[in-house]
Design a protein around this nucleic acid. Structure first.
Lengths: 147, 147
DNA sequence: ATACTTGCAAATGATTTGCCAGTGT
DNA sequence: ACACTGGCAAATCATTTGCAAGTAT
């Protein structure tokens, strides 16, 4: 099952630091792991497991396993926009939260700080601590509202 | 594909009114359709397609087809909480929006009016018109925050 | 040396689709 | 009658799991 992190997201700025973190935690650093991590650093955008597997010529199942491992270590997270596969990205580097236009598919990112008042509203209303990081906020973008 | 409604949600208070609406629109009122609709009226809570199929002894595929038909007619909508199957409910009757605790699974419903300020914030921030009706807002409930 | 990782194949879970027999209007 | 609907089986899509063979430490 796709998991929330087991540990707090550590700080890391590049592949070497990420690798160091994993090593400190006693994880094995296989070639595939390094490649997957590297692919995430190189991609400017959230990527699908399938995209990574194809790009690297690795088995899809292994990519999913690696992504889940990284996710448990707090190095990676993934977001669900409407249907379709989850999108994976480095956490820490890309902690933005997403708005997804259900009509045209447009994606808009917001910084966590910008959404804080929204979270605050929800907190007041319900006591729930909303985490928009996992499911994008679905709605309609300005363009599609005009249409 | 699971669709947004093709038409505005009509008003209907009971099975007969719902049936009347469908009939006006030239849809056939098969026994199964009536049964599925009735099951939704009887259920106090959002239900899965599977639950309906099992309860009624209908084929799962047909139930999905019927639910989608109703959804296109604006009579039904479905929401996704974390993983797992979508939950279907009558629209109009149950237009609330949901908060889902990703840790314990607790569900909390809010009236659309209550969430209006939240939508307003998001509108100001991004121009997006958020529709929490399709994906629940995921977060942690008060109990799980304590834990 | 040995426990952890891989690729491959097969299993899952949710939902959809093809097809032909059955039924509402 | 005829177009639309239902059941059944099989297909899809995203993701997970079992297993034997390979590899990092």
């Amino acid at each position: 099952m796709t998991q929330s992190p087991d540990v707090k997201a550590p700080d890391f700025a590049d592949l070497d630091e990420a690798v160091a973190i994993l090593r400190e935690r006693g994880m094995r650093l296989s070639t595939s792991r390094r490649l997957v991590l590297d692919a995430l650093f190189r991609a400017g955008t959230p990527v699908t497991a399938e995209g990574v597997a194809t790009e690297l010529g690795l088995d899809l199942a292994s990519v999913y396993r690696n992504l889940e491992t990284f996710e448990r270590q707090g190095l990676v997270r993934h977001v669900h926009f409407g249907h379709g596969p989850g999108l994976y990205m480095l956490s820490g580097h890309d902690d933005r939260e997403y708005l997804f236009c259900e009509q045209c598919g447009a994606v808009r990112a917001l910084e966590p700080a910008q959404l804080e008042p929204v979270r605050e509203q929800i907190r007041k209303l319900s006591g729930y601590e909303a985490r928009f990081a996992h499911f994008a906020i679905v709605g309609r973008c300005p363009d599609c509202q005009r249409a």
